[in-house]
């Protein structure tokens, strides 16, 4: 049996083992680039009962971070300041709101993030805050509590008004009203005796008969209306025809007027020519008349100029 131990080998092996252990630990603890976190602040105006450190922060149901700090806001002691660590890859913008949501019946609470506008500008850090601040909205319980309070107040008011409505005076009035109603009902009952009901039945029957007759009459009325429409159409056509005739007559009259105008012009021209001819004829007749007058006074003048010439002055 060889008990000779190579201590050098053992030492080297131990060193290699420790090195591998450190490397593994570092690999395990080293945060990847994708898993880089961003811290945000959320101020809640309500109690954060059930919210613990490392409580999850979810975005649309997906766990994107955790709560890393819980404290009362130093500037406003009515608020709780919650610091959360959220993955940088989470789309947080100015429209993102945080809401406390109960996790089943365990009493634990987580922060649910909701985004209203996907195209809102990214959330930036303000100068007086350490990290960017995500707005918070009241949780379901807060809303429920508020609503319940309002509802209780309204109910209380309603009860007070009901109490006022049913005071003694109103109760008396109501009793009187009910009594009068009873009287009226009794009278109606008296009025609606058998004869009256028979009469009403008879009237209803008559109305039925009238309705039936009207129903029978309606087709006739429809036919009458159709005929009226047809007659109206016919009248319209007649009027159109008359109008067309008048238009044609107007054209004809216009043509006649033009013809008359032409005839008038021709007649005027003819009259002028005739007047000219008449004038020439008149001149001829005057000359002829003068010759005849001269011969009448001395017929022998046709051959012998026997008549004594009456000499004019200067001749």
């Amino acid at each position: 049996m060889n008990n000779k131990v190579n201590y050098t080998f053992v030492g080297i092996s131990v060193l290699i083992g420790f090195s591998l252990l450190f490397a593994f630990t570092y690999w395990m603890l080293k945060p990847s680039n994708d898993e880089e976190m961003q811290k945000y602040l959320i101020y809640f105006d309500e109690s954060v009962f059930g919210l613990n450190l490392d409580a999850p922060v979810k975005f649309r149901g997906i766990s994107v971070g955790k709560v890393v700090d819980l404290r009362i806001n130093k500037k406003n002691t009515q608020q709780v300041q919650v610091t959360v660590e959220i993955r940088k890859s989470t789309p947080i913008n100015e429209s993102t709101v945080a809401k406390l949501t109960a996790q089943g019946i365990t009493g634990l609470t987580y922060i649910n993030l909701t985004q209203h506008k996907h195209n809102a500008p990214p959330l930036k850090k303000r100068e007086d805050d350490k990290y960017p601040v995500i707005k918070s909205v009241p949780s379901f319980f807060e809303n429920f509590e508020n609503s319940l309070g309002e509802m209780t107040a309204e109910l209380s008011k309603t009860l007070q008004k009901t109490q006022k409505l049913f005071d003694e005076k109103n109760q008396e009035e109501l009793s009187r009203l009910l009594s009068k109603s009873a009287d009226v009902m009794e009278r109606i009952d008296t009025m609606l005796d058998d004869n009256t009901i028979k009469h009403i039945h008879s009237s209803a029957k008559n109305i039925d008969d009238i309705t039936y007759k009207i129903d029978k009459l309606v087709p006739n009325i429809d036919a009458f209306v159709d005929k009226t429409v047809e007659w109206e159409r016919g009248i319209n056509n007649s009027f159109d025809s008359i109008k067309e005739t008048y238009l044609q007559m107007d054209d004809k009259m216009q043509n006649m007027a033009n013809s008359f105008e032409d005839a008038k012009n021709s007649f005027e021209t003819l009259a002028r020519e005739l007047e000219k001819t008449m004038k020439e004829s008149q001149y001829l007749m005057i000359d002829f008349q003068e010759s005849v007058d001269s011969l009448e006074k001395s017929p022998s003048d046709i051959i012998y100029k026997k008549r004594a010439i009456h000499k004019a002055p200067g001749e």
Partner: peptide, 19 residues
């Protein structure tokens, strides 16, 4: 309307014979 040249002497009307 005539080419005869008439004149009035007193109250009588005549025509020139050579005019």
């Amino acid at each position: 309307m005539s080419t005869k040249m008439y004149y009035v002497s007193g109250v009588e009307s005549y025509s020139y014979t050579v005019s």
